[in-house]
């Protein structure tokens, strides 16, 4: 069973282990970027890996559907990623600036495969039949690493959007 998030996050300087476990548990993951005219783009991503320094995260995006996302990131590097546990809508948003974009390595693909399997379970929980959920494509993918500048509560409700931690 997942722990409640907000009390565990507040006051942390970096992404702590509990939050990292939550973010890497196979959730619905959406990525926002924007172009030079400030037109935003939204894409469903595979999942997020929290890096060892707990200040960087890597989000995996499916190449075929994320061309606009990758182009936007190449232009300005601004990224927002929201991860939501569909059964109870607990959600967190990470915002930051991209430091590295590269085709996924074998280790990346292993992580992405695990996140994708978790998301498939989530979406089946809300009623999608396995014969359709198992058709979701996620390979080949890119690994997009970004410096986490701010963490926001994103669970629907009066506290949604509250900044839980901003990088110094």
């Amino acid at each position: 069973m997942r722990a409640r998030l907000a009390p565990l996050i507040s006051g942390l300087a970096v992404i702590d282990e509990t939050l990292a476990d939550f973010l890497q548990s196979g959730l619905a993951c959406a990525v926002a970027t924007r172009d030079a005219r400030l037109v935003p783009d939204c894409v469903l991503a595979v999942g997020v890996r929290i890096e060892r320094d707990r200040r960087h995260a890597t989000v995996f995006v499916h190449d075929t559907i994320s061309r606009r996302t990758l182009a936007n990131l190449k232009h300005n590097g601004q990224i927002a990623v929201t991860l939501e546990h569909l059964p109870d809508h607990h959600a967190i948003q990470l915002k930051g600036e991209v430091t590295r974009v590269a085709a996924a390595t074998e280790a990346d693909i292993a992580d992405a495969t695990r996140f994708h399997a978790g998301f498939v379970k989530e979406i089946e929980y809300v009623g999608v039949a396995p014969r359709f959920s198992r058709r979701l494509a996620f390979l080949p993918c890119h690994a997009v690493t970004f410096r986490v500048e701010a963490i926001f509560e994103q669970t629907p409700g009066p506290k949604a959007g509250a900044c839980l931690k901003e990088a110094p």
Binding site: A30, V31, P40, Q78, A80, Q93, K95
Partner: peptide, 8 residues
Amino acid sequence: DGRPNVTF
């Protein structure tokens, strides 16, 4: 100021 935001 160019900062994207995303939610469900």
